[in-house]
């Protein structure tokens, strides 16, 4: 069920697919930190994230802080709807500082 894969199409870009949750954070931590140390600039593609929870969020926070510490540029891009939703709820959009396209469902 954890059909998450990380793809390194280019060296400085990592795409997270499937779950970014408590089930995957342990693995992803190493993956993301490795990506960060290998590159001076890193793009994290979140467009294929199907599930996102608090554990996923705090992992992104940690990676972002680590990038700042190391003086590297880290960008999150293509936020899927579940990611947008949680970042919006958490009020951390400003902390991440990435351009977000927030589309609120009109039915709510």
């Amino acid at each position: 069920m954890v059909n998450r894969r990380t793809k390194n199409q280019q060296n400085n870009r990592i795409a997270i697919e499937g779950e970014l949750t408590i089930y995957t954070v342990l693995e992803l931590k190493d993956k993301l930190l490795a990506g960060l140390s290998d590159n001076s600039e890193l793009e994290l593609d979140l467009s294929e994230v199907g599930e996102f929870d608090g554990a996923g969020l705090q992992l992104l926070v940690m990676v972002k802080q680590q990038a700042t510490t190391l003086g590297k540029a880290l960008r999150f891009t293509g936020h899927s709807s579940v990611v947008l939703d949680l970042i919006d709820l958490s009020g951390l959009a400003g902390f991440f500082g990435d351009p977000l396209l927030i589309v609120r469902p009109s039915t709510q």
Partner: peptide, 21 residues
């Protein structure tokens, strides 16, 4: 709502399965 992330440790000490929020 303000998410308090102050407790999240630096990369080396962080256990991603532990909740710091």
């Amino acid at each position: 709502l303000v998410t308090i992330i102050d407790a999240i440790p630096a990369a080396a000490d962080m256990d991603p399965e532990t909740c710091y929020l």
